[in-house]
């Protein structure tokens, strides 16, 4: 059994630590600070914490003004609610190319019981399309901590960091350091590659064990840096394993699968089969039940990767 840890707890705790070292670090939230964990920062540094109420447009534009005045700005809410400010992010933050870091929580179907209204599965695509925006989906608490440190210490441009509500298995060891555009291969393999994002990485690793028992040696890559993406690792996988499966707790449109297919299509065309949400909204249920319900669970990864490896016909039409 893998050890799990909360990514948002890691975020909140790292913010507090960095707040002590960086006097220009300010944090905004929109009435969800106890859930996003920015409340930890607010308690320690009340003068530098702004709870903007349930007013995301105000949060984003105020964040822009703070960044225009030299502040290092973190703005947090649930991923789904930040999407209503797409245009504020586009105009006020990305066009001005400002030092605003959107670290959002409760993304994807792992928000579970809250249901379809709260399960954003389009956000990575929406944010990746914005000029100047960079997009990261940390795989675990260790990577989250490293990403937040990287954002403060080494960048001055907009970022979107997608976190979950659920705890995720810890896959990285403590020495891990995030670098933009660099993926991590957690398991090498020569028959097929599974490129995964977020919680799907740990599920892909489990799937790889089953695949191994069936004689299929799968490579598993954690692609946490969605933009910029690790083109080198993708091309290498295409060359060396000949077939790629992508796995994401997100729509297959404009998410990880689309980005990987773009790279493969441009550089070294091989079959790319995408596992993810398909033109559908989510549903209420226990987080981990939903993966099977939407056919993106461990068994599905095994089934699809095996079909892909054996060059069977595509298992279903994609709308």
């Amino acid at each position: 059994m893998m050890v799990t840890e909360s990514l948002r707890d890691a975020y909140g705790e790292k913010l507090v630590e960095l707040g002590g070292r960086y006097r220009d670090l300010v944090v905004l939230d929109a009435d969800l600070s106890t859930s996003t964990k920015t409340a930890l920062f607010g308690k320690k540094y009340p003068d530098r914490f702004f709870n903007m109420g349930i007013a995301e447009q105000s949060m984003v534009t105020t964040a822009a003004g703070l960044a225009l005045s030299g502040k290092i700005v973190f703005a947090s809410t649930f991923a789904v609610f930040l999407m209503r400010t797409y245009e504020q992010i586009r105009q006020s933050v990305c066009y001005n190319n400002l030092n605003v870091k959107f670290v959002v929580t409760h993304a994807g179907i792992t928000v579970g019981e809250d249901g379809a209204t709260h399960q954003i599965i389009e956000d990575v695509g929406i944010m990746s399309g914005l000029p100047n925006m960079r997009v990261i989906v940390p795989v675990d608490s260790v990577e989250t901590t490293s990403v937040i440190e990287y954002l403060v210490e080494e960048t001055k441009t907009p970022y979107y960091v997608r976190l979950s509500r659920e705890k995720f298995p810890i896959l990285n060891d403590e020495s891990y350091e995030y670098r933009p555009g660099r993926s991590v291969t957690f398991k090498d393999g020569s028959d097929i590659t599974i490129v995964a994002m977020g919680v799907m990485v740990s599920m892909a690793l489990k799937a790889a064990e089953t695949l191994k028992s069936r004689g299929i040696d799968a490579r598993v890559i954690n692609m946490s840096s969605i933009k910029p993406i690790d083109r080198y690792a993708i091309i290498k996988a295409a060359r060396e394993t000949g077939r790629i499966v992508t796995a994401e707790e997100h729509s297959i449109y404009n998410g990880l699968g689309s980005r990987v297919a773009e790279v493969v299509g441009e550089e070294y065309p091989v079959p790319v089969w995408r596992i993810g949400m398909r033109d559908t909204f989510g549903k209420s249920g226990k987080a981990w039940e939903l993966f099977d319900y939407f056919h993106i669970g461990v068994e599905d990864i095994v089934r699809i990767a095996e079909s892909c490896f054996r060059e069977e016909k595509r298992y279903e039409n994609i709308p």
Binding site: Q57, T62, G65
Partner: peptide, 19 residues
């Protein structure tokens, strides 16, 4: 600040005021 899409400048101004 770059502007043009309406409604966003007051928030930017408030952010500058807070800074």
């Amino acid at each position: 600040a770059s502007t043009g899409s309406l409604g966003q400048g007051l928030g930017i101004g408030i952010g500058m005021g807070l800074a």
